[in-house]
Simulated scan of single mutants.
Amino acid sequence: MPALDPTAVRHLYVHVPFCPTICPYCDFHVLTRRAGLVERYLERVEEEAARLAGEYPVDLDTVYIGGGTPSFLRGAEVTALAGSIRRHLGWGRLENTLEINPGTVSPDRAGLWRDLGFDRASVGVQSLDDATLRFLGRQHDARQAREAVTTLVGQGFRVSGDLITAVPRQPLESDIRGLVDLGVGHVSAYTLTIEPGTEFARRGVTVEEDDERAGFERTEDMLTSLGFTRYEVSNYARPGQESRHNLAYWNNRTYLGLGPGAAGHYPGGSGPVLTTRRTNPHLHEWLAGEPGEVQPVDAEEYVTDALFMGLRLREGVDLADLTRRSGLEVRERYAEPMAANIRRGLLTLTGDQLCATPQGWWRLNQVVADFLEAEDPRRIDHFQA
Rank of each mutant, 00 (worst) to 15 (best):
residue 69 T to P: 02
residue 239 P to R: 06
residue 212 E to Q: 11
residue 230 R to D: 13
residue 266 Y to I: 00
residue 331 R to P: 10
residue 157 F to S: 01
residue 290 E to Y: 02
residue 217 E to S: 14
residue 290 E to D: 08
residue 307 L to I: 04
residue 237 A to F: 02
residue 266 Y to T: 00
residue 277 R to F: 10
residue 110 A to V: 00
residue 210 D to C: 10
residue 100 I to N: 00
residue 329 E to K: 10
residue 381 D to Q: 15
residue 235 N to P: 05
residue 380 I to N: 01
residue 231 Y to I: 13
residue 93 R to G: 07
residue 108 D to P: 00
residue 273 V to Q: 13
residue 119 D to A: 02
residue 18 F to A: 01
residue 96 N to V: 00
residue 207 V to H: 10
residue 227 G to M: 04
residue 183 G to V: 08
residue 314 R to M: 12
residue 377 P to R: 10
residue 176 I to C: 02
residue 213 R to I: 12
residue 234 S to Y: 07
residue 66 G to A: 14
residue 345 G to Q: 12
residue 86 R to A: 12
residue 296 P to R: 08
residue 23 C to H: 10
residue 95 E to S: 06
residue 317 V to M: 07
residue 230 R to V: 13
residue 343 R to C: 05
residue 180 V to L: 02
residue 286 W to D: 08
residue 122 S to E: 01
residue 202 R to W: 13
residue 357 T to W: 04
residue 141 D to Q: 03
residue 104 T to A: 04
residue 142 A to I: 05
residue 55 E to Y: 06
residue 216 F to G: 01
residue 244 R to M: 12
residue 293 E to H: 09
residue 27 D to N: 14
residue 243 S to F: 13
residue 279 T to C: 04
residue 115 D to G: 11
residue 43 E to M: 13
residue 110 A to P: 00
residue 186 H to R: 07
residue 104 T to R: 01
residue 329 E to V: 03
residue 364 L to R: 02
residue 292 G to M: 12
residue 281 P to K: 04
residue 101 N to T: 04
residue 339 A to I: 00
residue 278 R to K: 15
residue 157 F to P: 00
residue 262 A to Q: 08
residue 261 G to N: 08
residue 290 E to W: 01
residue 364 L to S: 11
residue 62 T to E: 10
residue 209 E to I: 00
residue 343 R to L: 15
residue 158 R to S: 15
residue 94 L to V: 01
residue 383 F to A: 06
residue 328 L to M: 06
